[in-house]
Nucleic acid binder design. Structure first.
Length: 578
DNA sequence: GCCGTTTTCGGCCCGACTGTTTTCAGTCG
């Protein structure tokens, strides 16, 4: 069994959970959690690196002890510490921590007093009224636990960004109508453009918080108010999405926006910077502790908060404590790509296969967005369900595009294909027809379960075709539905560099594929990324907003994105490949 | 467990809300 970074991260998270239940030093617990997060974000394949007998890079937060444990886990899948903890506590007990309202202390009580080890046992204890007997618990806790366990057993956890937006934006609009409101901003992981969000965080500034809270409580979609104070409230919407809302005074807007945007790790790092300067950073502002009492020195804008700790403003998409603070300090923050930088789109379908609009309609919609070009990339014949094109039908579409291009003004259609990469790494259409196209987008759509070695070789071989220009949705994952296929992404990125191929960042809401970490890898290796809509209708160009968010999370600048180039430059790049 | 132009020891981010308490621990974000 290959050990992936995520597996190592999981071991560290589990160690952190178990240590916490044992009431270990909280900073030791944090060290394990921090390490798990760092490994989760790391694009370098650790087990592979060690197998190649290369040294691990020095990572901040990973010292000698954790580095040794990483070696141990990479080799054996586990570590002596975890095995020891498993002998001391039942392994299933960590699932109790996933219940809102239950933390390590209460798990400890439930286990010692009631011998509860699993969610099922917790549910039974609650139903039998035994939880209220435990010190520190009462009837209310018992009822909340029962409800939470039952919700946990039925509902799923995270929402895709695009889905969350459909709930968050109308709610924000509703709150904007409250009396005395100044700002309403959706913050949290939503603002950081994470591909999925666990809840919605809304920040409000207003003269009278009460009016906002009342309007929130009156929102028709609120199913359950789980907490409500004078400045802070939480609710679950009918769709199951949790919403947290926070009202602050306008002079605290910037500090609260920063605090509420996160990430948590980023906030901790910023507060630590403040601390080094004798400053206290919280959601109300930045305070100088030297003066008698405390003196507020910043907080009305995010810029002022960053400036107080000696940093330029950092875009939300970078705020993961994944190097952005160091880059900001050095004045080397990337100038992130923006939606308006895109000059065209390199992946779209029409009615000829599984799209819903005609060539003309797609061209018009692309032009209306201000694009200079749009590549038509239908499925190839292997995709029978999508009515994929065989050489004859593709040749016919090529003719149609050429005829249409002669009549179009201000927009050029590029002749392309989304060709299947077959199991043996050959392409689903003959070179004779591929040679007639402007670009060839290669995609894996079948045999997703190949071993890492075979899947990687398959893709590497496909990229050897002189006609291959862009690797579509390189991981194949569907968010929350299908895991990525097992490939060595670093080898693929390096191959792309060697043969002059680009990688696609497919902006479809269910895909968002490249991952952010692989965007960074592509950038570091000098491989251009095409941010593509995979549009199946004229409305789907909207997906690009999400794709750009993901690209920004991957530190990409306009120069790193293939389709920010003007048409003439793009055609040059394509020709070099051909 | 990590880390160091103050330190190799002694620090490690900060505040709101809930429930069960009679002044605060636990949990969460």
């Amino acid at each position: 069994m290959p050990v992936h970074n995520a597996d190592i991260a999981k071991v560290f998270d589990e160690i952190a959970d178990l240590l916490e239940i044992q009431e270990a030093n909280p900073f030791r617990v944090r060290a394990y959690r921090n390490a798990a997060r760092i490994l989760g974000d790391l694009s370098l394949d650790i087990a592979q690196t060690l197998a190649d007998e290369k040294p691990l890079p020095k990572l901040p937060g990973i010292g000698e002890d954790l580095a040794n444990k990483i070696h141990e886990i990479a080799e054996t899948g586990t570590t002596a510490l975890l095995e020891r903890l498993h002998r001391e506590l039942p392994p299933a007990i960590t699932e109790l921590l996933r219940i809102p309202g239950i933390g390590p202390k209460r798990v400890r009580h439930l286990y010692h007093d009631l011998k509860v080890q699993t969610l099922g046992e917790l549910q039974r204890a609650a139903k039998e009224g035994r939880i209220r007997e435990v010190p520190g618990f009462g009837e209310k806790s018992e009822a909340n636990i029962l409800a939470a366990v039952e919700a946990r057993l039925t509902k799923k956890k995270r929402f895709k960004l695009a889905v969350a937006a459909q709930y968050a934006e109308p709610l924000a609009a509703h709150l904007r109508k409250a009396q005395g409101v100044r700002d309403v901003v959706v913050a949290g992981s939503f603002r950081r453009m994470k591909e999925t969000v666990g809840d919605i965080d809304i920040l409000v500034t207003a003269e009278t918080p009460e009016a906002v809270m009342q309007r929130f409580a009156a929102y028709p979609e609120v199913r359950d108010m789980t907490a409500s104070g004078t400045t802070r409230a939480s609710a679950v919407l009918a769709c199951g999405l949790q919403v947290d809302i926070r009202v602050v005074a306008k002079e605290s807007f910037g500090a609260a926006l920063h605090y509420f945007t996160g990430s948590k790790a980023h906030n901790i790092a910023v507060r630590r910077l403040g601390q080094e300067r004798g400053l206290k950073v919280n959601e109300y502002g930045v305070f100088d502790r030297d003066a008698r009492g405390e003196k507020r020195i910043a907080g009305d804008t995010e810029e002022s908060v960053f400036a107080a700790v000696g940093l330029p403003w950092i875009p939300p998409e970078l705020r993961e404590d994944a190097g952005e603070i160091e880059a900001a300090r050095r004045g080397e923050l990337p100038k992130l790509v923006e939606l308006g930088d895109l000059r065209g789109d390199l992946h779209a379908h029409t009615k000829a296969t599984d799209g819903r609009n005609t060539l003309q309609e797609m061209a018009d919609a692309a032009k209306a967005r201000g694009f200079e070009y749009l590549a038509i990339t239908e499925h190839s014949r292997g995709e029978a369900m999508a009515h994929g094109l065989d050489p004859r039908r593709l040749a016919k579409q090529v003719d149609e595009i050429e005829r249409l291009n002669a009549t179009l003004e201000g927009i050029a259609l590029l002749k392309g294909i989304e060709v299947d990469i077959l199991e043996d790494g050959t392409l689903d259409l003959p070179d004779s027809i591929l040679a007639k196209l402007d670009l060839v987008v290669g995609a894996v759509h079948s045999k997703l379960g190949l071993t890492r070695a075979r899947q990687t070789e398959r893709i590497l071989k496909a990229m050897d075709s002189p006609y291959f220009t862009i690797l579509a949705h390189p991981s194949g994952r569907l968010i929350d539905e299908r895991d990525p296929y097992d490939v060595d992404m670093l080898r693929i990125v390096r191959k792309a560099k060697a043969v002059g191929v680009a990688l696609e960042l497919n902006a479809h809401p269910a895909r968002l594929d490249l991952f952010d970490t692989h965007c960074r890898m592509a950038k570091e290796e000098g491989v251009p990324v095409a941010v593509s809509s995979d549009a199946h209708s004229t409305h789907d160009f909207e997906h690009l907003r999400l794709g750009i968010g993901q690209a920004r999370r991957g530190w990409l600048e306009a120069k790193d994105v293939l389709n920010t180039r003007p048409l003439a430059d793009l055609l040059d790049w394509l020709k070099k490949r051909g």
